[in-house]
Amino acid sequence: MSIYEKWKEIAFEERDEASANKFWKDYCEIEKGIYEAILHNKEEIIQGSIKELADKYKVEPTYFMGFLDGINESIYETIQLEELTEISTIDLRIDFEKLYYNMHEAKAHWLYNLQEWDNILTEDRRKEIKKEYNLSKTVVREIKIGRNEPCICGSEKKYKKCCGK
C-alpha cells in the first residue's frame, strides 16, 4: 500500500462524528505547524525525501502526505501522490499567491489568517487575492433578451419571430 493510500485510509475511514471532528482538528493543527514553518522561513522550494521532510516538520510521513495532498494544487508542477514512498525525493516550488487563493477556496481560515503571511505577501496583495476569490464565487446573470426586442442576429425581426423560436 502506498503512503498516499495510507493517508486516504486514515483520513477518510469511517468514524463517528466526534472522532472525525477530533481527527480533523488534530490534523489541522499539524498542517498549521507545517505552514507556519514554511511561511516563516519563506520556503518557496521544498526538497528532500518524504521521510526527511516529515522529520524536518516533526510529523509522521503519512500526515506529511496529507499536507502534500492539500498543497499539490498550489505548486508549479503537481506531483503524482500515488507513486510516492517514504524514500521518494520531491522538489516542490510553491506558488504562494495560488496557495493563498486555494486556502480561501478550502475555507481554511486557520491557514490564510496566519501572521506569517506578512513575510510573504503584502496586506494589499492578500486583499486583492481575497477579492479575486470572492468574485470567482459571484454568479453573474446573463442578459436576458425580451421576446419583443430586436433579434440579436441583426435581422431586424422581433426575437420571438427569429432566433427565439
Rank of each mutant, 00 (worst) to 15 (best):
130 K>F: 13
107 K>M: 12
127 K>T: 08
129 I>V: 14
124 D>K: 15
104 H>G: 01
122 T>G: 13
101 Y>I: 13
112 Y>D: 04
125 R>K: 15
114 L>Y: 07
113 N>P: 00
132 E>C: 03
124 D>R: 13
111 L>D: 02
119 N>K: 12
101 Y>T: 11
127 K>N: 12
121 L>T: 06
102 N>A: 01
100 Y>P: 03
128 E>F: 09
121 L>H: 09
114 L>F: 07
109 H>Y: 13
129 I>D: 12
115 Q>R: 12
113 N>L: 07
133 Y>W: 12
127 K>R: 13
101 Y>Q: 10
104 H>R: 06
108 A>G: 02
117 W>F: 01
104 H>M: 09
97 E>K: 15
96 F>H: 06
99 L>Q: 04
119 N>H: 15
104 H>N: 09
132 E>F: 09
107 K>L: 11
118 D>K: 14
96 F>Q: 06
99 L>C: 07
109 H>F: 12
112 Y>I: 04
122 T>F: 00
108 A>H: 10
124 D>P: 00
97 E>F: 07
132 E>A: 10
117 W>V: 07
132 E>R: 09
121 L>M: 10
109 H>C: 05
100 Y>R: 10
100 Y>L: 08
133 Y>L: 03
106 A>C: 09
96 F>L: 03
125 R>V: 10
96 F>T: 07
125 R>Q: 14
115 Q>A: 10
133 Y>K: 04
111 L>R: 10
106 A>P: 00
133 Y>F: 15
110 W>K: 06
97 E>Q: 15
131 K>L: 13
115 Q>N: 11
107 K>H: 14
113 N>R: 12
133 Y>T: 06
123 E>I: 02
131 K>R: 14
128 E>R: 12
119 N>E: 07
125 R>G: 03
98 K>T: 12
122 T>V: 01
105 E>C: 11
99 L>V: 00
118 D>R: 11
115 Q>T: 13
132 E>H: 05
97 E>T: 13
114 L>P: 05
130 K>H: 13
104 H>D: 01
119 N>C: 04
115 Q>M: 05
133 Y>S: 00
133 Y>V: 03
107 K>V: 11
115 Q>W: 07
100 Y>F: 15
102 N>S: 08
104 H>Q: 06
125 R>E: 13
133 Y>R: 02
122 T>M: 04
115 Q>I: 13
97 E>S: 14
107 K>S: 15
116 E>I: 03
126 R>Q: 10
100 Y>W: 04
125 R>L: 14
127 K>I: 07
126 R>K: 15
104 H>S: 08
107 K>C: 07
